[in-house]
Every structure is written in C-alpha cells, then in structure tokens.
Amino acid sequence: MIPLAQPDIGEEEIRLVNEVLRSGWLSMGPKVIEFEKLFAKYMGTKHAIAINSGTSGLHLCIKSLNISKGDEVITSPFSFIASSNCIMFEGGTPVFVDIDPDTLNLDAKQIEDAITENTKAILPVHVFGHPCEMDAIMDIAEEHDLAVVEDACEAIGAEYKGKKAGTFGNASVFAFYPNKQITTGEGAMIVTDDDHIAKLCKSMRNQGRSEDAEWLNHIMLGYNYRLDEMSCALGIGQLDRIDELLGKRSRVAEKYTKKLNGVDGIVTQYLSQDVKMSWFVYVVQVSQEIDRNEVMKYLREHDVSCRPYFTPIHLQPFYKETFGYKEGDFPICERVCESTIALPFYGNIDEQTIEEVCSVLKDALEIYKN
C-alpha cells in the first residue's frame, strides 16, 4: 500500500534526539528554549511558545483572548474539527461562514454579514497551506475591533503578499504532526508579538505556573500542554532543513499537477497569484457526476492510500445536535467536501510512485463516470 504520508527524518535529527536521551533531561529543558528561539527567528515574531499539539495551541490562544460563554468567533466549516472545538472549550460559539470555491478558505466577503454584537474574534484557517485573504480579514477585524487567531497548522512557510502566514493576527498556531511539512511527532508552536498573550500561554501550558514562580506555585488555571525535550530536538533538526523539506514537497506537487492538469473529471489545487503555497497535502476534486467514494474505494483496492479532506464540521453529529445545523447550510463547503480526495503526498515520494498513483486515479475516473 502506498502510504498517504511519511515523515522525512534525517540522521541529524536522530543524533539530536539521541543527544537528549543521553542527557537525562527529557522535559522543560534547554531544547524547548532553543526550539522556541529558532522558531521565533524563522517567523520574525517576538515570541514562540512550544506546546504539545495544534489543538492545545488554539485553545490557549482563545483563552488568552478571554473568549467565554456567549462570545462568538467567526471561522470556517471546512477544516479539521479542532479549529472550532477550541472555541467551544471556553464556552464560545463558532460562527461559520461558507468558503471560497477556489481557495477553499473562509470567504472574506461573507465575514461582515456574520458579525453581531457578540462577535469577539475571527479564526481563519490557512487550508492545505494556501494562505487566506489576510488583507481583507485584517481590515474587517480592525474596523470592528476584533481579535484574529490564525490557524496556520497546515501552513508553515506559506506567504501572503510576501509576508509569512501566521504573522498577521494577534496570535497563530503551527502544528508538527508526522504528516506536516516539519514534524516533532506530536507538537505545535504558538507565535505572537503580543507580550501579554505570550506570558499567558507560557503559564497556561505549564499548569498555570509563571516562569519566575516558585516550584508548585500556580498563579492561574493551567493545563499540561508542555512539549518534551525529544520532540523539540527533532523540531530543531527539522527547522534547520525547512527550506529543503518545503522544496521537496513543492516539487512533488508540481509533478502531480503536471500529470493531472487537464484530466477530465478532476480539478487540481488552485493557487492565488499573491500567495506562496506551503504544501501540506495534495488534494484533487472530482466532478459532481463522478462518485468520489467509489473512486476512493478503487484507489485503495489498487494499493493507493487516500482520504477525503475534509468532512464539513457543521455536519458532524455533535455540531448538528448542539447547533441544529443541517445539509444545505453551507453549500459550497458541502459540495467541496463531497468531491475531495487527498492522494499520497510526502517529500520523498519518487517519480515512479507518482506515476502509479496518477495512472490508478485516471483508470478510476474512467470507470466511475456516470
């Protein structure tokens, strides 16, 4: 079976992790601090705070903005569920707006219609590593005095009009799960230029202790969202190779696009002129007359891993039960979700495997056209 994703781990990363294991210092040590400093330098931000997952990072950002019961946060229904769950963790209400049919990001033109007196923030998601229309989003946020938290979990290295995704809002989160552009196994990073947000997030990730607090002296409600030394050592090695890793993924995406552009029955990833894509996954959309699920079944039967990316958040059972959402509420999102297929995608996938994946996909499209 051709895997859907695969981490790219080099010998230097292995050496760095082994160095930590031999040191005996496995948590909240020098590698956490080093990784944070290097990441902040890469992003060009004042602060970077290492945490154990993108979900944890988004939660801390929402909590640091004092989002609470009755507050609304505008976000996208086309995302991994954590981007809206993090709002509900604090009693807030995620308010969805439909997506742009090309970029698949939250449609900036629909945001103002969703703003109410209870709206406190906007949480845009840079889907698949394609940055959102941040100029328009930041203009709306400024006009209505709203905070912005960027879910950049899939977008490390992406740029919008020459500026890195994740550096526009009050804070942002990047994730390092094994299928991401760089990995720490589990883990993520909050970045911000806001000293207050940084101070809160650093404390809350470590059970509410402040950096200068005495042992077991907790100054606020906190969580165990710490990232360990081994993960940070791996992250240091990966970050040192980030241009190489992003370049390899970009070249794989180019090969897929070259082989699949113009193939009847599918649409490849749209790229806006003013963005630099950071390739997280390679997703195609099949035409409405083709049964996507049958195509996926055919791919798997022929040893090609694949996944639907994503399923609509508002149609998840919990969200339907809690908010009363139903089919048709966000039609563009729903149509896209019914058509997407993520193909095997990682930096070290070879030309022959790409050719095999594309050949099986083309065969499936021919068979399942109505």
Rank of each mutant, 00 (worst) to 15 (best):
T116K: 09
L146D: 01
E142D: 15
A121L: 03
A158C: 13
A165S: 11
M138K: 10
L146T: 00
P131I: 00
G166E: 04
D135P: 15
M134L: 15
H130C: 11
E154K: 05
V149D: 03
E143Y: 13
A155R: 01
P124Y: 06
A114Y: 03
D151M: 04
A141P: 01
A147D: 12
H126D: 14
F168R: 03
E159G: 08
I140M: 13
I137R: 00
I115G: 11
I122N: 00
A121V: 03
G157Q: 05
Y160G: 11
E154R: 04
G129W: 00
G157M: 03
V148A: 08
A152C: 02
E159A: 13
D145W: 10
I156E: 01
K120E: 15
C132N: 12
G157N: 02
K163F: 05
C132W: 04
V149K: 01
E117N: 15
A165Q: 04
H130A: 08
I137G: 06
P124T: 03
V149L: 03
P124N: 04
E143H: 14
V149Y: 03
G157P: 14
N170S: 13
I115P: 10
K120H: 12
E117P: 15
C132K: 07
L146E: 11
A136M: 04
A152F: 06
K161T: 02
F128D: 07
T116E: 14
H126E: 07
F168V: 03
A152K: 03
H144P: 14
P124K: 04
A136G: 05
M138S: 07
G169T: 00
V127N: 13
G129H: 01
H130I: 03
I140S: 11
A158N: 09
A158D: 01
G129L: 06
L146A: 06
D139F: 11
I115M: 10
I115V: 07
A155V: 07
V149F: 01
A165E: 01
H144R: 09
G169M: 07
A152R: 01
V148F: 02
M134N: 15
D139G: 15
D145R: 11
